[in-house]
């Protein structure tokens, strides 16, 4: 049996207003998985993400990262995180690609230690890997949405994480860049033996690239391989969204 990277057991969550966001989620993600987490707006995707990242404390049930309960987990450099681009709003920040990517090393290098030449060499290497080598010293304000998203991926990768979590990474990115983006993710995954979880509401595109799919609508409506999902897609989505849904398939 492969090593468990993320394990959620009977996980429920409600905010202080009493509204239940997540209901008895059981979920296991193993080393090497590329999981797509899908669900409509307000389905609890972001809350689940925050619980996995330790940004919210689990109140009912457990969250385990690499076999350790999230409350006791300290090895955060094992996890790379790319937030929703819309949430960044960092275009006007006076920083270069190099400075932003280097900030991904802050947890790994440790308190009171300064970044050295080898750290910046690693930054340059990762920036080149995501295809932005020539932009290393450019201000991030000069980049396009797709390029900026790759900067954030480089920041998440620079500390050599084992698990990469991406929250709606393609929002605001044009169609061509989305294709390149998923291609990049797949090659990064293969090169670095990464385990990945990608959260998206764009079911059509994302499920063609991942090998496992989890469908969330308060509870887990489906959890299985991408092939199983493709065979039962209409049924699964109708159980999540109701009968009003019409599935529009993308072909690439």
């Amino acid at each position: 049996m492969k090593e468990s990277v993320v394990r959620l057991s009977s996980l429920s969550f409600q905010y202080e207003d009493g509204k239940k966001i997540l209901d008895h989620i059981n979920f296991n993600m193993e080393k090497g998985d590329f999981v797509g987490l899908v669900g409509p707006n307000g389905s609890g995707k972001s809350t689940l993400m925050k619980l996995i990242l330790g940004l919210l404390p689990p109140k009912e049930g457990t969250v385990e990262l690499f076999g350790t309960p999230v409350q006791k987990f300290r090895d955060w450099t094992k996890i790379g995180y790319v937030a929703q681009q819309a949430a960044h709003g960092t275009g006007g920040f006076p920083a270069t690609v190099k400075e932003v990517v280097a900030s991904g090393l802050v947890g790994k290098v440790g308190l009171f230690r300064r970044l050295k030449r080898e750290h910046y060499e690693k930054v340059a290497e990762v920036v080149k890997r995501v295809g932005l080598g020539e932009k290393l010293n450019d201000r991030i304000g000069k980049l396009s949405g797709g390029q900026l998203q790759r900067v954030f991926i480089a920041r998440a990768l620079v500390a050599d994480p084992e698990l990469l979590i991406l929250d709606e990474p393609t929002v605001g990115v044009d169609q061509e860049s989305i294709e390149q983006f998923y291609g990049l993710l797949r090659s990064l995954k293969e090169e670095n033996e990464l385990t990945m979880m990608i959260v998206s509401h764009d079911v059509g595109v994302m499920t063609q690239w991942v090998n496992k799919v989890a469908c969330l609508q308060r509870g887990l409506h489906f959890h299985g391989t991408a092939d199983e999902f493709a065979h039962n897609q209409d049924k699964i989505l109708q159980s999540m969204y109701g009968d009003a849904i019409r599935v529009l398939a993308h072909h690439h």
Binding site: A83, A95, S103, G107
Partner: peptide
């Protein structure tokens, strides 16, 4: 820098 640029990411990075 990390906290000023992206507080949530800094927190996830263990800062």
């Amino acid at each position: 820098f990390a906290v000023s640029f992206d507080e949530e990411h800094a927190r996830v990075s263990g800062v």
